[in-house]
Design a protein around this nucleic acid. Structure first.
Lengths: 189, 189
DNA sequence: AAGATCATGTAAATCGTTACATGATTGT
DNA sequence: ACAATCATGTAACGATTTACATGATCTT
């Protein structure tokens, strides 16, 4: 089975939501919407856009200008929309993701419990920051997105993030409390 | 900033838990313990082991044999143990992970709600399988691991997985219920 | 005798990130 | 004027996965 990258589909998807975008726009839009579950760099966006154009999945509209620097806007073609829909329809491949925090805790017996405690506290802080951002995003999209369907799907994805953060925070609390117990128990051995 | 792979540390960590392992053993041990948050392939394990040996972080003990094929067992050196502890002590880099399911749902308005429902149901099934495996692992380690500290850290990492699965299952339920409502609402438009 | 699994490794492909390079436009 | 940010791209690097290659040992 080939590896098949998903970047082209992510870009087609962004063009379905925001037609007539430049590569720069796509990056910025991802940063303000999908950043927590999907990101692309300019180094992948521009070549992918070129490739998609050659495959007739997007059409390019270059803004004429007397200067050297031009802006290129892209939109989905019918074929591009169909390709996106086909990809949206096929099953998700289960990813084999890596988690450095969990790996370190798995080997945790090698170091002082204080070190593991520190990792958990840092993770906790990161989660709290994220929770705050999620709340802000929620408020924002609820007031700005008028399309019912779009709002519905966006809220589902946001809810996923919020629930992940919330449950991870509860786990942190449990884990930190348990580390306390472990540390105290060790004082008597 | 260089990229710095974590594979060597994952392998050092495995050698801290299971000294005198072969590359094959490391792979098998990962499959039965860290598979849900960390995996390595033979193609990375063998070269990394060679590299670690050259750096004097592990020492190789080759089992003599009259045959061509030999088994190589590796253990941490003092320097290797120190290197592992150093890595365990430094802060975790926040990973920028990708989530294909969430990305597809984010673009969900492009396709029939039934398709998104199907993705969620498949995800749900995968989660339920995982929940079952986690329960089995829990029973197993609780009866076989005698070392208090090791059991403690392993249970923390397992608890993380279980909590992730549990909260994701609740999210699935909510999301599926909401898709039902969306579908019914559309019938009247 | 055959199949599963033990066991080790190399080569090639893929793919994503970082560094590099350039210049325009807008706001203060 | 200067800084920020808009805007597009290439080159090199690093890391992981897949395919390839080989053979031993153990169980039925």
């Amino acid at each position: 089975m080939p590896k098949e990258t998903k970047s082209p589909f992510a870009i087609l998807g962004m063009l379905s939501l925001y037609p007539n975008s430049s590569g720069y726009d796509i990056k910025k839009n991802m940063e303000s919407s999908t950043q927590f579950f999907w990101k692309e760099t300019f180094s992948s966006i521009y070549p992918v856009l070129e490739k998609l154009q050659k495959q007739k999945l997007v059409k390019k509209h270059t803004q004429s200008s007397q200067n050297k620097r031009q802006r290129h806007y892209y939109s989905l073609t019918t074929k591009g929309q169909q390709t996106l829909e086909d990809w949206l329809s096929i099953s998700i491949e289960t990813p084999q993701s890596r988690n450095e925090l969990i790996l370190k805790l798995f080997f945790g017996e090698n170091v002082d419990p204080e070190i593991n405690k520190k990792h958990l506290e840092e993770f906790q802080n990161m989660l709290m920051d994220k929770a705050k951002i999620y709340s802000e995003i929620k408020k924002e999209i609820e007031t700005t997105i008028n399309d019912k369907k779009r709002l519905f799907y966006w809220l589902i994805t946001l809810d996923y993030g919020m629930m992940q953060v919330q449950s991870a925070l509860e786990w942190c609390k449990r884990a930190l409390a348990n580390i306390e117990i472990l540390t105290k128990a060790q004082q008597f051995t």
